[in-house]
Design a binder for these strands. Structure first.
Length: 231
DNA sequence: GCGACAG
DNA sequence: ATCTTGTCGC
């Protein structure tokens, strides 16, 4: 059955109302969870298309552990919320939900999101917001830092250092490939930080980004998908 | 006041 | 996110 979001709140909010809502919802994020019997891992990519002022979301579902794509969907919506650092989910999640609800086949057991999770000023990044709406395990995987301080992780794939803010560990700075900038991994919902880091690393191939997110990003902005012999 | 600031 | 310029690896 299709992934469906709970209606926890309305979407036509002002930036101020959005901040207040984040503070109300953040305590509901579950910061633990181990994941057993993972069969499918989804990646979510979000972005803005200046031409047409559209918010774009792409989702790819990959089988575990083969990482073969089994489902994909793209959605574009007229952008209805400004880009404000810390409020990205209010701009992007409507398109993400539209794409998720169009997916065919069995639901993913884990969703890797393009953006922060707990590594957010109010501990409620896009991955937390999406995880709470769906009540499913999510992980935030961001290419650059939003908040927090950290030391540079070691040079080898899998090396990581804690990301700290306000006296707590809010994420991990993970070297996913030698010679490239690290990624910022944080809890989204229903996973522990070690689980979030483990699955980010488990989904790596030879690239900087975990394969489900790469597949999603490629879907909307890369070359057209090559259909396999079974399609 | 000045810089920082997911996508 | 997007754009531009310069450098490096395959």
């Amino acid at each position: 059955m299709p992934l469906r979001a709970r209606t926890l709140h309305p979407w036509g909010l002002s930036p101020h109302e959005a901040r207040v809502l984040q503070e109300r919802l953040a305590p509901h994020v579950i910061r633990e969870g181990r994941l057993e019997r993972v069969r499918r891992v989804a990646g979510v990519d979000v972005g803005f298309e200046e031409r047409g002022r559209l918010t774009r979301a792409a989702v790819a579902v990959l089988a575990w552990p083969t990482l073969e794509p089994v489902a994909r969907a793209v959605a574009r919506c007229p952008t209805a919320f400004p880009y404000v650092p810390g409020l990205l989910s209010f701009r992007e999640i409507p398109a993400v939900l539209q794409a998720l609800e169009a997916l065919e086949g069995p639901d993913p057991d884990l969703i890797l999101c393009d953006g922060q999770g707990l590594a957010h000023p109010r501990r409620f990044g896009l991955a937390c917001h999406l995880g709470l709406l769906l009540d499913r395990p999510t992980v935030g995987v961001a290419k650059t830092r939003l908040v927090g301080t950290h030391e540079e992780p070691g040079p080898r794939r899998g090396d990581w250092t804690p990301l700290r803010d306000g006296g707590e560990i809010i994420g991990a700075v993970v070297r996913t490939r030698e010679g490239v900038r690290p990624l910022y991994v944080s809890i989204g919902h229903r996973v522990s930080l070690p689980t979030a880091v483990r699955w980010t690393l488990a989904c790596l191939t030879r690239y900087r980004l975990p394969e489900p997110i790469r597949a999603a990003h490629r879907l909307a902005s890369g070359p057209p998908p090559r259909l396999g012999p079974g399609a």
